[in-house]
Design a protein around this nucleic acid. Sequence first.
DNA 1: TCTGGGGTCCTAGGACCC
DNA 2: TCTGGGGTCCTAGGACCC
Length: 423
Amino acid sequence: MPGGASILHADLDAFYASVEQLLDPALRGRPIAVGGSDRGGVVLAASYEAKAFGVRGGMPGWRARRLCPTITFVRGHFDRYQQLADTVVGVMSDFTPAVERISIDEAFLDVSGSVHLFGPPTAIATQLRDRVRDEVGLPISVGVARTKHLAKIASQVAKPDGLVVVDPDAERTFLDPLPVELMWGVGPVTQRKLAAEGITTIGQLARSSSGDVERLLGHANGAKLSALSHNRDPRRVVTSTRARSVGAQSAMGRRVATPEAVRSTLGHLADRVATRLRTKSRAGRTITVRVRFADLRAVTRSITLDAAISATLTLTEVAEHLAWQAIDAEDPTSDGGPCEISLLAISVSNLVVQQVIQLELPLPPPDPRSPGSEAGAARWAVDCTVDRVRARFGTAAVDYLPAALGRRRGVPETFRELAEHEL
DNA sequence: TCTGGGGTCCTAGGACCC
DNA sequence: TCTGGGGTCCTAGGACCC
């Protein structure tokens, strides 16, 4: 049934918080936040009871407490999140192989080929919700519609713990009164721009001329939103996509940008990124470093190398070079005072598959921009050895920059892994 | 008490080529 | 002497998503 409503968008409700309430019955029905505390840190997820007070993800803990005095802060069971989410995806896969996972707690399903086995899409959505609740113990909201965009909006409308089906004949009736910010691609900035033109609902957007919208929002975004408001969404459910970049970042509170601090932080980040690259036989040509200063201004510097790299030390050196370019250029206190930074990030893009080791290529002096050099090959070989040692004895067995900072108080490694995309 | 961490895509200007 | 159009790649910044 090509024109039918056979796309499902399934979204676990307040996922991390729901898992904590599942694991500890004493937390059920109560306002809780995963992450954050009265002293600091940010809230990673809030239960619906906490959301009722205005608590949101990304909010500093002290502010959550101010909004909701009875809130309970809990440490996350990050390893359990991945397990449970994988179990849920397993249930989805029982209904169709066409599952597109877009984050740990969210996925699209195309069930057009499954109706002869499980009944119409609405019945499938109901069975999916029942099974996730009965077998995993978590609430999940599902939207059913003809397109991904409609299905996603429907699941948002269905929350919490609901099911909304958009009949193909009733799409305009469903869409028109909804606020524009429910649309994929409308964030705070776009919402403000549209509101300034008197556009606050999807129906109003659909009735605006696409020329006006493009002038207001730029060519690509304007055309995209205009099309979506008219219900034209050509996207299909795809089961796998390759990552286009790999990165890591580390917030540092507020610290003076000493050579030692910059080097050790970038060393850890480069280690994470390069290890992930090598694990998947990938390497990248473009290296981007982002520096955020104490006042939260952020700048980036990037360079595109002649050859792709995946060696930890080479990546560290290139990143260091870029970081100092950024710091030297932007240092707000360049008149002598120490420069304070609050975050460093490394990202590698322009990825290529790198199956073979580049040995030789004699000559040039060890230059981080010429990873094909002898030094580059040697570093790659060292990295491969480190990778194997870690595979046998654990990541902590080898450290590139031992104890330079001690173990900084940061988010657990398992939390980082939850956010990683498939390479 | 300054607000985590991992991503995608787009824009605009400049260099460079034909 | 001034002048064209089209295309690709790179860099820096920004909006947005989960």
